[in-house]
Computed example of a mutant assay.
Amino acid sequence: MLAAYAARQSADDPLSGLEVGEIDAPSTPEGWVTVDVRAAALNHHDVWSLRGVGLPADRLLPMILGCDAAGTDPEGNEVLVHSVIASPGWAGDETLDPRRSLLSEVHPGTLAEQVRVPARNLVPKPAELSWEQAACLPTAWLTAYRMLFTNAGVQPGDTVLVQGAAGGVATALVQLGSAAGLRMWVTSRDAAKGEAAVALGALHAFDSGARLPERVDAVMETVGAATWSHSVNSLRPGGRIVISGATSGDAPAKAELTKIFFKQLQVIGSTMGTRDELERLTKFVVAQSIQPKIDRVLPLAEAREGFAAMAAGQVDGKVVFTT
């Protein structure tokens, strides 16, 4: 079957290990089902896998990449794929399972004509969403949904700062938060990306590190070291930082511990989301008539173009592949 997969890894030249072509279809374990993929979306996770992060080359290559997909199950039902794979016998919040994995880390991923997943990992696809829109939701959008609605502790009318304006999670945060009645602010080093966030629903866009007109109720942090001090300084007393990534590194120059305890700030880690949260996300997107922002749609056979754009930081919204 046609797939985009990691055949090799290189920290300096990740695309050198990407292959797009025919590969043997994996077997379907007991209790799993085969989904015929109609659309699959790209994430930074896929580029990191090509760099050698989180994917052991000695055991798991070649590995089909991808976490996001929408398609049809063996009965012909239209479904989304929840990519968090819990360990056998795990009960409860699967994101807290210490042995959990994501598709494309241990099990073959979604950037293929078919993907195998546990039957419990399927979520009904609303008819109101196109295949391309639905494929955007299971990773970046689910991460944003959990950050805002499970972990941020905010209410309509509260002000939320999103560090970095154009990434997949940041874009989803702006669209979800504005639809929920939150005052969404963003920061960006690129004025055009800030303007694009405002067009999606953000109230204001500020230069990275700029002094804000008032302190905010919560900060959504995915950048890490480069924005950490600004995130802490931007919060009102008692506010929360929700962190789901650290693309600029995880070792800031200052930990800001004194400000954190003196202002009684809360730092909340947030990773992906549960299958139930994904189902609630799909319903919220439909109810609010949200259209996930898509940067480009490409045939799976042209996946290299999408990977190259993401690796170069030249995407604004999701990159989606169709089969």
Rank of each mutant, 00 (worst) to 15 (best):
L161E: 07
L80Y: 01
S130M: 04
N77A: 15
L182F: 10
A205K: 06
M63Y: 00
D36C: 05
W90G: 04
G21C: 02
T110F: 01
L96P: 00
G181W: 03
H204W: 12
N43L: 01
P237N: 05
G153K: 02
A251M: 13
A226D: 13
W228I: 14
T150A: 02
T271H: 08
D97R: 02
E19M: 12
V47K: 07
S178D: 11
S289Q: 14
R296K: 10
V186C: 07
T271G: 00
A25T: 15
V37M: 06
R215Y: 11
K263L: 13
L200K: 14
Q114M: 07
L176E: 01
R59Y: 09
S231T: 08
F262E: 14
T150V: 00
R189M: 02
P237W: 09
L212R: 01
G71P: 05
L182A: 03
K283C: 04
V53E: 10
W90Q: 04
A11E: 02
V84S: 02
T139L: 13
A312F: 07
Q264I: 11
V37D: 02
A144E: 00
V84E: 01
S248W: 11
P252K: 12
L15P: 06
A144H: 00
L142I: 08
P14F: 08
D24I: 00
Q266V: 11
W141E: 03
R120Q: 14
A191V: 15
A86T: 09
R99Y: 13
Q163G: 05
V297T: 12
T187Y: 07
D68N: 09
V320P: 03
D295W: 12
V33Y: 08
F307I: 05
A309Q: 14
K125V: 04
D58W: 05
Y5R: 03
L182W: 02
E195Q: 15
W32V: 08
L281G: 04
